[in-house]
Design a binder for these strands. Sequence first.
DNA 1: GTAAATTTAATTGCGTACAATTAAATAGAC
DNA 2: GTCTATTTAATTGTACGCAATTAAATTTAC
Lengths: 147, 147
Amino acid sequence: MNSEDLLKLDNQLCFAIYACSREITRLYRPILDKLELTYPQFLTLTVLWEHERLTVKDIGELLYLDSGTLTPMLKRMEAMDLLSRVRASDDERKVFVELTSKGIKLREDALELPEKCIPHFGLGKGEYTDLLFKMNQLIGNLQKVTR
Amino acid sequence: MNSEDLLKLDNQLCFAIYACSREITRLYRPILDKLELTYPQFLTLTVLWEHERLTVKDIGELLYLDSGTLTPMLKRMEAMDLLSRVRASDDERKVFVELTSKGIKLREDALELPEKCIPHFGLGKGEYTDLLFKMNQLIGNLQKVTR
DNA sequence: GTAAATTTAATTGCGTACAATTAAATAGAC
DNA sequence: GTCTATTTAATTGTACGCAATTAAATTTAC
């Protein structure tokens, strides 16, 4: 494709991905609302369900977010009693984030989010896995350039 | 995959797409900065390069954005002398958006954005087209549910 | 051992996203 | 023709997302 064609909206993969990301969030929103979570908050809980205790930096590396995004979001989630933020005693630059019992318990209710929503993607099992692999590959390629 | 597995970050296609969207924006940013544009502003120009004159609603339907996002962004772009906003005389609810000569001219410089960035995706020509098709298909599937 | 460099989180500021509401104009129902 | 419903954009308010800066703690270089 030449650069004229690449400029057309319909040929821009980046737009398709950007639009798709927002469409999925739209699909998730009713259940997220029920859980009283935003999508980035749900992702934050997801990594904490998997890791128990993480620094702000750890979360940032897992979700590709920086402290400018995370600090205020984590404070909101702390105010909601989903997690606690404690400055590390051995290295006072670090802040450990840990789930409260409420945050841990929320996992059971959150199980239905992917369970109920992913079928609406209309992808076969192989297609889902394949697309997941390709997107992760693309992320990897991009990071080679941008880091 | 069961719902326990689907909840894991590494298995969530939605996260891969969300992260990928932001990684692409990160890749685009140096050139966008040079053009003094944000990514959504670039998309808005893209549809106006293709259509000449669009209402706010038209732009919203093409980019899946609502007036809450578009109105302030279009005002900023008007202040940058990239486009004009004129209320339609036959139907005063509508606002027509049209590029200024500066907005039209910017297209030449913008050609290098996809031209230079897309090679960094590290995808073969077939892979790019294939992934584009699959993402658009997924968007279509999602819209069946959310509209 | 101390000065400089690095790391970590917080802060500031700007620009989206989007739900919800408002206000004005137009279309439809009768 | 008028009353109601719908359409369109704007407004308001909240929450990201990220660049740039700040401030404090720790590492390192010497």
